[in-house]
């Protein structure tokens, strides 16, 4: 069973602003019966250009209905410029969070809002998709929609893109395309400031030990712990650094690769090019 918040369940059981408006100023429609969820959103503006009334109709699961209901509450009284700033993340946060696999429900809400605003401003049909190539044929998800979800939510993996947009969740034929888009968006992000490496100088043995310890703590351990592993510094003899890998890492078939690639590379980068990393004796060596 999904771990829905009380607030989400409240909006599901008692959805706000359900229905249709007579002569709405803007109408947006996203999704379809075939896809398993669909949302129609309509609003009316007052004399000052604020959203005076808003109604929705949703076909879908509890989180789709709740996301729609939340959105209507969030945009009431706002100008279109203000409403436009609302992201899918805001909708999810309003509900106290959504399960990962349900994030696409919040994206659907935001997309319907943008479609309704376009419908008002440009007179585009309520269901008009932004002109862009369809990447996921199964769910009809466009490149632009995927790019937007990646940028706004800092998505890193194809699985995350599927959770947020449904793209890749059908036959899986577009998974490589989604990965390519992820790579492009990532490449286009401004590169983070390169960390300033302290100028290399001759270290005393004590300084070297301290620096190795710091580097392990800061650069290496977090990366290993992310995968359920850990590293322990056993000994330092000249340029020979002996470490022991713990947890998942110690039995992992690629532990030698991890050692060489990560531990040694990081230590060489931050301490000294001459360091050599070895695994402590008595531990199983994996070829």
């Amino acid at each position: 069973m999904w771990n829905y918040t009380d607030k989400l369940m409240d909006h599901f059981k008692n959805p706000r602003n359900v229905g249709v408006l007579e002569e709405p100023d803007g109408v947006g429609e996203v999704g379809s019966l075939a896809c398993g969820d669909a949302l129609r959103l309509m609003f009316k503006l007052d004399a000052e250009g604020r959203i005076a009334d808003v109604k929705f109709q949703t076909f879908g699961c509890a989180s789709a209905i709740a996301s729609s209901s939340a959105l209507t509450e969030m945009i009431k009284g706002k100008t279109l410029e203000e409403a436009q700033q609302i992201t899918n993340r805001d909708i999810a946060e309003f509900l106290g969070g959504l399960p990962d696999q349900k994030m696409h429900c919040s994206v659907m809400g935001r997309d319907a809002l943008l479609a309704a605003i376009d419908n008002y401003r440009k007179g585009t049909p309520p269901d008009e998709k932004v002109d862009s190539d369809i990447v996921c044929q199964c769910f009809g998800v466009t490149r632009l929609e995927i790019e937007r979800a990646i940028e706004e939510n800092n998505l890193e993996t194809v699985a995350e893109v599927t959770n947020y947009t449904k793209a890749g969740g059908g036959c899986g034929g577009c998974v490589d395309d989604i990965q390519a888009i992820l790579d492009e968006v990532k490449a286009a992000r401004p590169a983070p400031e390169p960390e300033k490496t302290p100028p290399r100088r001759r270290l005393t043995t004590l300084q070297k030990i301290k620096l190795i310890e710091e580097t392990i703590e800061r650069e290496i351990r977090p990366a290993l712990q992310k995968d359920g592993g850990d590293v322990e510094l056993i000994d330092i003899e000249g340029n020979r650094v002996v470490v022991s890998l713990r947890g998942t890492c110690s039995t992992c078939l690629v532990s030698q690769v991890t050692l060489k690639k990560l531990v040694e590379a990081k230590l060489r980068e931050f301490v000294s090019d001459e360091l050599r990393v070895e695994q402590a004796d008595g531990e199983e060596e994996v070829a």
């Binding site: 379809s32 075939a34 896809c35 076909f59 009809g140």
Partner: peptide, 19 residues
């Protein structure tokens, strides 16, 4: 709550789903 009440024809949206 459903926008399809009155039949799927009441829905202007295209069926782009092919799953």
């Amino acid at each position: 709550i459903s926008p399809f009440v009155g039949g799927a024809a009441a829905w202007a949206g295209k069926s782009t789903c092919n799953v």
